[in-house]
């Protein structure tokens, strides 16, 4: 996981830095390639704003994978069976792998991994809001797999057709693994819901806490994210935030019913005429608070990343020194 529709807020002063060399003819030719569903590759000409949008989106996606290791990693040592422990560890490892391919995909656009990591640590780059919530019980591990990886799939399957080739190809690989994660999460929930009353209560409590933050993963409502039109035109984005959110609700509510869990939304109902579930209002204040750094775990997540980075400094330095020494010796 996980991209989130946060990437469209281009800063006005950045937009002004458009390269003077971009002629109308070039822009039109580029748009024709997008319209023809051609893949844009790293060495191809592209508008600066396209490059910048992708760097922002892909690096944010990579950071989300890396930060996302923390809430799930929180239960590795306590997973209640060896099989669950191994499955969870394999998932967390997959997320690290996703981070790695995504950083590599972003690097094709001319930004270094070090720069991206610096932007994450300084708070300049965002990551998905969902990972700023705490995993308090084992059922949260089930809920994350089921809901968060489930939402990630809704977001990311269309990205497999993204106009930017390296990103699209990374997504094909990532999506296969995310659907595996989603099934494993659902299986944890299923076992809990078939277990004792206490286990069922644990599952319900997890759904209560993760439902709304999962809906927020799709980003601001369409009426508040006017910049997505450009991403749509460039075939980076294929569906609006609200369309994806609706797909997720339609797919997930029947699964909750199957589990015998109640979705924590009194306004939720099925509209026979449209064939869609209608749901209550999202607390956007909470969403913006979490994005601004004031969620339950924002500080802890970044502090842990910063600590790992700082603690590893001497190790990275030693590896560089060793490589330099031996490169000199080999050359001699």
């Amino acid at each position: 996981m996980y991209t989130q529709g946060l990437d469209q807020q281009g800063k006005p002063e950045q937009e002004k830095q458009r390269r003077p060399a971009e002629s109308e003819a070039e822009l039109r030719a580029f748009q024709r390639r997008c319209d023809a569903e051609e893949k844009i590759e790293a060495k191809d000409w592209m508008p600066e704003a396209y490059r910048r949008t992708l760097v922002r989106q892909i690096s944010q996606h990579a950071h989300s994978e890396i930060i996302g290791m923390q809430p799930e990693g929180n239960w590795l040592t306590r997973a209640p069976s060896l099989k669950r422990k191994v499955i969870l560890l394999a998932k967390v490892q997959d997320e690290a792998g996703h981070g790695l391919y995504l950083y590599s995909a972003a690097e094709t656009l001319g930004v270094s991994r070090d720069k991206m990591v610096d932007d994450l640590l300084s708070g300049k780059a965002k990551y998905s809001s969902i990972f700023n919530y705490a995993t308090l019980t084992w059922a949260d591990i089930g809920a994350i797999g089921w809901l968060v990886d489930g939402a990630a799939i809704m977001n990311q399957v269309p990205l497999c057709r993204c106009s930017y080739g390296p990103y699209a190809r990374a997504m094909v690989r990532v999506c296969k693994e995310e659907s595996f994660h989603q099934r494993q999460g659902f299986d944890i929930m299923h076992v809990l819901c078939s277990g004792s009353e206490a286990q069922k209560a644990m599952a319900q409590d997890a759904l209560n806490r993760w439902w709304w933050p999962s809906l927020m993963m799709f980003g601001p409502s369409d009426k508040d994210s006017e910049h997505s039109a450009q991403s749509m035109a460039w075939k980076i984005k294929r569906f609006s935030n609200d369309e994806l959110r609706q797909k997720f609700v339609d797919a997930t509510v029947p699964q909750a019913e199957f589990l015998g869990l109640r979705v924590p939304d009194d306004d939720l109902h099925f509209n026979e005429a449209t064939g869609h579930y209608e749901f209550g209002d999202i607390d956007w204040q909470e969403f913006y608070d979490v994005l601004a750094g004031n969620g339950p775990c924002n500080r802890e997540r970044l502090a842990k990343r910063q600590k790992a980075h700082d603690d590893g400094a001497w190790v990275r330095e030693a590896a560089r020194a060793y490589a330099a020494k031996h490169a000199v010796q080999e050359a001699a």
Binding site: G99, L100, K307
Partner: peptide
Amino acid sequence: IERVAGEPELEAELANANFAL
């Protein structure tokens, strides 16, 4: 697995998880 998400670099993170598996 106590070390997960605390390694010096991403490649070491993958190796640690792999070995723990």
